[in-house]
Design a protein around this nucleic acid. Structure first.
Lengths: 222, 222
DNA sequence: GAATGCATTATTGTATACAATACTGGGTAA
DNA sequence: TTACCCAGTATTGTATACAATAATGCATTC
C-alpha cells in the first residue's frame, strides 16, 4: 500500500481532517504540506490521491485539493451503506466470534465507558469507531473492514459538518447492548440494535441545507 | 479521480489484465510501461497505485509491481462480498427501478443473449458484468456501484486463475430470470436467484491448490 | 569445487526542474 | 465608469535527475 514515509504523512493528514484541524473545503496546498513534512511534493501527492479515493479530500484538476465537504445526499448514502454492511457484519460476528475476540471487544466497550466525557472529543470518537471496526474484523471477510474503515472515517467528517457538538458520539450504552447481543450470539437482536444505533447517530445530525459549509461566497449570496 | 492521460493508461492496463494479456504474477516494469505509452514514469506510477488499491496488482517495495494472483481465500471473500452486496442491491433495484432503467437492463440482457458464443470470450464477460453493474446502479446508493465495480473486475482475474475456459461466464439465461424478477418487483425471488447465480459461477471454479499459479519455483518445490 | 563477498545492474523511491493551467489584478479603451 | 484584455502569479501536472534498495553475477578464497 503506502510505504512508511507516506503512511506517516497519510495518518497525520487524515487525523487532522478527522479532528477538524483541517476543516471541510479547506485547500491543501502540496508545496505547503511538503514543506511542513520536510519532504518533496511527490509523497504528498501520493497521499492526497489516496485520501481522494477514500473521499476525504476532493482533487480538482489544476485547481487544488480540498478537504471534502459531503453533501447531505452523500452523507445519507454513507449511513445507509454503513447500516447494510454493519448489519450484516454484526450478524456474522455473532456466529463467528471466539473467546479472544469477544474479550477484545469487551475491552473496547470498557475503555469507551471509562474515557466517556473525560478525554477529548476526538479521542472518544476514535475509540467508538474502533468498536465498530472490531466487529467488522470479527465478521471474517476483510472487505467489511476495508469498506467500513473508510465509511467510518467519512462519518467523522460528516459529523464535523452536520453535527452540533454534543451528543453525536456513540453512546457507550448502545455499544454495551450490542456487545451483549453478540456475546449471546443473538444475531437478530444484534443487527436490530446496530441499525437503531446508526440511525440515531444520523438523526442527531442537522441536515438543514443552510448549515452546509459553503465553499465560496457566491454559494452563500447567490 | 484520474485525469484523462492517466485514465487512458488505467483503462488499457486494466483491460489487459482482465483479458489476461497480462497474466497473474507478471511483473509490470514502470519504465517499460511508460515507454510503451509514450509518457514518463510519473503517470504510470499513479495508475499502478490506483490498480493496487483495487487489488488488481500488488506493489512490493523496491521490487516491483505484479499482476495480482488472488489466493483461494481471497477469491472466496470476493464472491462472498458480492453475494452480500448484490443480494441487497437487487432487492433495492426491485423497489426503486423506473421504466427507463428497466429498459436499459433489458437491453443488456438482449445484448448478452445476442453475442453469446459468437463474440470473443472477454467481450461477453464485459457485457455480463455490465448487467450486474446496472443493477448496482439502479439500487440507488453509489457505494454499490463503486464496490461492485472493483469486485467484478477482480472476479475476472479470479476466473483467469481458477477458471477452466468454458462455462465461467454468466449464463444469459440466469440474467433473464433475474431481470424478470426485478421487472415483477419480486425482491425475494430476485435476491435468491442472484445468490444462486453467483454461487454457481463460484462453484465452476477449480479451487484445487495445485492449480494456483506459482510466483516462484520455490513455491512449487518447497 | 563450493561458498562467500563485492561490484555491477536493474528497479523502484524521492526530489527537483519544467510545462500547463487557472486565477488575479491592473491598465486601457470605449 | 465599466468592461475587457493581457501580463504576472500561484498551483498543479509531467518529465527528468538522483538516491536507495534489492537482485545478479563474477571473482576470490578456502
Amino acid at each position: 500500500m503506502l510505504n512508511s514515509l507516506e503512511m506517516d504523512i497519510y495518518k497525520k493528514i487524515k487525523q487532522a481532517i478527522i479532528q477538524q484541524k483541517l476543516r471541510p473545503n479547506m485547500q491543501l496546498i502540496e508545496k505547503d504540506l511538503a514543506e511542513s513534512f520536510g519532504v518533496s511534493r511527490t509523497p504528498v501527492r501520493n497521499v492526497l490521491r489516496r485520501l481522494e479515493y477514500e473521499k476525504l479530500v476532493k482533487i480538482k484538476e489544476h485547481k487544488g485539493t480540498f478537504v471534502s465537504c459531503s453533501t447531505i445526499e452523500e452523507a445519507k448514502e454513507v449511513f445507509e451503506m454503513r447500516r447494510i454492511l454493519e448489519g450484516e457484519a454484526v450478524r456474522r460476528a455473532c456466529r463467528l466470534h471466539n473467546e479472544e475476540q469477544l474479550k477484545e471487544l469487551e475491552t473496547l466497550v470498557e475503555e469507551e465507558r471509562h474515557i466517556y466525557g473525560s478525554l477529548d472529543f476526538y479521542e472518544s470518537l476514535k475509540v467508538s469507531g474502533d468498536f465498530h471496526l472490531k466487529i467488522a474484523e470479527i465478521a471474517g471477510n476483510s472487505y467489511f473492514y476495508q469498506y467500513l474503515e473508510d465509511l467510518i472515517s467519512l462519518t467523522y467528517v460528516i459529523i464535523a459538518i452536520y453535527g452540533r457538538g454534543k451528543m453525536e458520539t456513540c453512546g457507550s450504552h448502545d455499544h454495551l447492548q450490542i456487545f451483549n447481543a453478540i456475546k449471546q450470539r443473538d444475531g437478530d437482536l444484534a443487527e436490530r440494535l446496530s441499525l437503531i444505533h446508526l440511525s440515531e447517530i444520523e438523526s442527531n445530525l442537522h441536515f438543514n441545507e443552510e448549515l452546509q459549509i459553503s465553499s465560496s461566497l457566491s454559494d452563500i449570496f447567490l
